[in-house]
Every structure is written in C-alpha cells, then in structure tokens.
Write a protein that binds this DNA or RNA. Structure first.
Lengths: 118, 118
DNA sequence: TTTATTCCCATAGATTGTCTAGTGGAGTAA
DNA sequence: TTACTCCACTAGACAATCTATGGGAATAAA
C-alpha cells in the first residue's frame, strides 16, 4: 500500500531547496550533535513538513560538509540503541552558519525587491 | 585587463538562485514583453546587483519556460535597432507566476522558522 | 528459533539547472 | 576598413538533488 500523503501542500524538495540544505543542517546542529535521521526529522518537523529531506540528498550533504570541515563526525549509539554516526558543528562551521544566514537573508531581500517593488 | 568588481558583496549566482530564476523571469515580464538582455538587466538592476544572471543560465531558462508554455516569443527590433527575440507572458505563465510566488513565500517562511524559531 | 520490522548508514545513476567559455551576426562609430 | 556594441545561442563541465536501492544490526512477532 502506498504511503499516505503527509498533509497540506506538496512538500518542497530540491528544486527550490537547493543550496539551502547545508544551511539548515548547520543550524540544526547548533543545539548539539545529532545523527542523520534526527537531522532530517528536525528539519521536516520544525518547518512544519513544508521542507522534505530525502536520504539521497542528506548523506551527500553531510559528507560534503564534513569534507569542508564545517562539521565533524563520530560513532555513537542512538536513543534506540542503534549504532549511529553523530555530527557536530565545528568552529569553522559556526562561522559558515553566520555567513550563510546573512547570505540567505540578502537573497530573500533581493528576490522580494523584484517580486514586490516599493 | 580584468573587469573591475561591481560593488559590495559578491553577487549571488546559481548556488542559491537555483529554481528562482524562472520565477524572476516571469515576474519581469508582467509589465510587458522584453528580450533577453533587458530581462537580465532588469533582474540585476532591481535586485540592486545582488542577483547576477549569466547568459548561460538565461537562455536555457527562456527556452525552458517557452517549452512549458509559460512564455511565448516573437522577433522584433530592440531600442537599439537590433533584431531581438521578445518574450511575453502567456495566461498559463501568469498562473505559474502566482503559484510560484506563494511557493517561494512558503519556503521563505519555512526556512525562517528553522533559522529563527519563536 | 525463525521471520518480519524498524532504525540507521550509504551508494549508483539519472536528472536538472547552473557556470564557463566561447561563436556569430548585424548595426554603429571611428 | 576596423573596431565596438548589442543580441542570440551553444557545448561541455559541474554541483546538488532525486529515485531506487542495498545492507547491517537491534527489536518484536510468530
């Protein structure tokens, strides 16, 4: 049986989330380390299911962020007693978060200037 | 000699503009038909040079939008007396503009909920 | 004990949209 | 004639995502 749709409007995937996933992951890790599943769930939940995070996007993103030194990983045990790879924000990642947040704000302002000129 | 940098922060290209270009083109055409050069200039100017539109992105986007029936094209003569392909918004494109605008707003709200929880 | 289910990590291949780096033609100015 | 600007367009590379899997390990059900 196919899964029931979540609710409300169709969730947003790649198409418009592009480039934003990294920012959202960094932000999610501010409160403390987390593993993949938790990160994806947090983003979906805190966006009220508007944003969807597919596994095929999540793991490449995590590896990408780790390669760049913005997050670091270690093995641990999840709340459900499963082996899980935890990610934590590095100092470099914290700077990135600040930078990417203002970049995001700037883009939103710029797009809105076009969509809704004064 | 290399071109001088425009001004202020580095302009935003693809990386974060992704998926937004179509929306911006549609919006630009609301006031009337325009050709490629004008469209790119309008987006850059009205965003106060925050958004950059490369030709290598612009023309594929225009062809894409035309394929989908959201814009239509015709040959004309530019203000500088050059042959130019003008694009105009179709009724279908007008609907798309409305849909994509609220979609954009929804994404911005969702991302902001994560970046700045209440 | 066996089987099914859930949790978690991970990858391969296709697709999409962008970028870089050009080509070419036609009007205009030097 | 030459150089320059305006305008359209393309090829090839690249980056981030998606779809569709696979697989291991803990738990629950049979």
């Amino acid at each position: 049986m196919p899964a029931m749709p979540k609710r409300g409007n169709p969730p947003i995937q790649g198409e418009m989330l592009q480039g934003t996933l990294d920012l959202l992951i960094l932000k999610t890790l501010v409160v403390g380390p987390a593993h993949g599943h938790t990160i994806a769930y947090a983003i979906e939940h805190r966006s009220e299911d508007v944003l969807q995070v597919e596994h095929g996007s999540l793991y490449p993103a995590l590896h990408r962020l780790e390669d760049r030194g913005w997050i670091a990983s270690f093995w641990g045990t999840s709340e459900n007693n499963r082996k899980a790879r935890y990610y934590r924000l590095t100092p470099k990642g914290r700077k990135q978060l600040t930078a990417q947040t203002s970049r995001w704000d700037e883009i939103v302002r710029a797009v809105n200037r076009i969509l809704r000129p004064a």
